[in-house]
Design a protein around this nucleic acid. Sequence first.
DNA 1: CGACTACTTTGATGTTCGTCAAAATAGTTG
DNA 2: CAACTATTTTGACGAACATCAAAGTAGTCG
Lengths: 91, 91
Amino acid sequence: MKEKEATLIAKALGEPSRFSIYSQIAEGDGIYCGEVCNKHALSPGTVSHHLKVLTDLGLITSRKEGLNVYYRSVPEKFSAYLAYLQSLNRK
Amino acid sequence: MKEKEATLIAKALGEPSRFSIYSQIAEGDGIYCGEVCNKHALSPGTVSHHLKVLTDLGLITSRKEGLNVYYRSVPEKFSAYLAYLQSLNRK
DNA sequence: CGACTACTTTGATGTTCGTCAAAATAGTTG
DNA sequence: CAACTATTTTGACGAACATCAAAGTAGTCG
């Protein structure tokens, strides 16, 4: 992973709502968009926006199931980010 | 470390200039403020601002040496942040 | 003390971006 | 097809913030 990508991920997780949403997704085994809206006091449009940012960065993936959209995390991507951060100390 | 603090650190590192400045400090064994200004095309005021943000978060410390101010990283703080991130996956 | 240096603080500016309401889209179901 | 539901997109607005120039501060040195 390059510095630019790491910075974009850090920026994404630096927004409180988005960090919280990512945490919720990462902790479970997948979740529907609506459940995210329920847990956080945010409009559907705002939640959809945050989910798109996380998806574009590869931190989560989505799959349509009927009317709902199912989201789950991509641990490998997150691990790659952690590995990059770890390499910063004592390079 | 709590979620709020982790988010603040992520936000701080999500700003490209600040991420780059932190990297420069973390990679070496300490550095003067002026050297940071030289490496990055930023005004002294801007660099000072970024260094203050990182200092307030406990990611770096400063010590005055004559006319110069010497900065070095606090690896323990950064490690605590990494540990928190690691706990997000598979909690 | 007075000139100089390294850094910090202040004030202003332009941009980014989180948020919502509302319109639009896609898919379901009678 | 028509009504409905879940999500996304659009447009607008306000707040946060990165940046700079310039003024301020602290410490050094003749």
